[in-house]
């Protein structure tokens, strides 16, 4: 497994600034800061749950 893909420092500062100014929402900040980091298990679980719920539709 290689090094996780991180957001460069300068881009992070820019995102912090955009969030403070209200240009981006918290959801957008989360998504752009994370880029999937620490999130793959959550997303996999979400996919499982959605598949499970589709059985009831």
């Amino acid at each position: 497994m290689g090094e996780p893909e991180k957001v460069p420092q300068q881009e992070r500062r820019e995102l912090n600034k955009l969030y403070r100014e209200g240009t981006i929402t918290r959801k957008q900040l989360m998504s752009r800061m994370k880029k999937g980091l620490f999130d793959h298990e959550r997303l996999a679980m979400k996919e499982k749950f959605n598949q499970f719920m589709n059985r009831f539709k």
Binding site: K6, M33, F38, D39
Partner: peptide
């Protein structure tokens, strides 16, 4: 639960960048 989980992973990312800096 997913929202809270997402919030936790977001916190982890902030912690990671803080530790890195």
């Amino acid at each position: 639960l997913d929202e809270n989980y997402e919030d936790e992973t977001h916190t982890m990312v902030q912690v990671m960048y803080t530790a890195e800096e």
